[in-house]
């Protein structure tokens, strides 16, 4: 039982790691673009914004199980296989990209517009706005978003596992459910719970550390404005 648990844990971590990696890699630019092209923003472009928004919405509304099936040919094209941990990374990442893009967009929306205006007044261009103002200021919210993303992917990876993706989900389904090895199933579930809890705690610690720097202890009237950096914590719970 133990080597089985160990191998499948590695498979789960493999799937979660790589799908998170791609979701962050692609989700951040998509989220930034969504933010920048909205009405009144620096790169205001209604067409791009609407099209991108529609794609993201379609991606998010697909039931994950259906998405896996629909993507089988694409997955095979991309990585050569459609099952196993490697095959699961593709639908996981594709489901996670629009999800994370929206989290990024929401995080950027919380950045005080006055900061963007100040950067413009200094002569900063779009590059400066994105890399020196928006992303650093939204960092606590982005970290909170990644936390949510990872937890979401742990859950999705279990679904992927149940339909041939490997990992803990597969283990719980094939051995625990189909072969009535209740203890194995319970062990898997407990491990997933621990995994999720660990990720959440880790994310919260990082967010809190970043947020403390940015200012709960702020003073005077701007207190209300500055404590916005604290909100990401709430986002995690709400998502």
């Amino acid at each position: 039982m133990q080597p089985l648990l160990y191998d499948n844990t590695l498979d789960t971590l493999f799937m979660v790691w790589w799908s998170t990696f791609y979701a962050v890699l692609i989700g951040i630019p998509v989220g930034v673009l969504l933010h920048l092209t909205q009405r009144g923003a620096v790169l205001q472009n209604v067409v791009v914004n609407k099209v991108l928004g529609a794609i993201v919405n379609i991606g998010r509304s697909f039931p994950f199980l259906i998405l896996i099936v629909v993507l089988i040919p694409f997955t095979r094209l991309l990585v050569g296989v459609s099952i196993g941990p490697t095959g699961a990374v593709v639908p996981l990442a594709l489901a996670a990209i629009p999800f994370f893009a929206r989290l990024v967009e929401a995080a950027l929306r919380e950045v005080d517009h006055g900061l963007v205006e100040a950067a413009h007044a200094m002569g900063g261009g779009t590059w400066t706005i994105v890399f020196k103002v928006l992303l650093p200021q939204a960092l606590p919210a982005l970290i909170a978003g990644v936390t949510t993303l990872v937890i979401q992917l742990i859950g999705y990876s279990a679904i992927a596992g149940a339909v041939g993706g490997g990992g803990l989900g597969n283990l719980a389904y094939t051995y625990g459910y189909q072969q009535y090895e209740t203890s194995l199933m319970i062990a898997t579930v407990v491990e997933l719970i621990l995994l999720v809890t660990l990720v959440q705690i880790l994310g919260d610690v990082v967010v809190r550390r970043l947020a403390r720097r940015g200012g709960r202890a702020s003073s005077f009237r701007v207190g209300l404005r500055r404590t916005r950096t604290e909100e990401p914590v709430a986002v995690t719970e709400a998502a």
Binding site: D112, G114, G123, K132, Q137, L210, G214, R221, V222, R226
Partner: peptide, 15 residues
């Protein structure tokens, strides 16, 4: 970049 500006709410980057 050669016109300075200061704001009511300071607009400093908290990060």
């Amino acid at each position: 970049s050669h016109i300075g500006m200061v704001f009511q709410h300071f607009n400093l980057l908290s990060s």
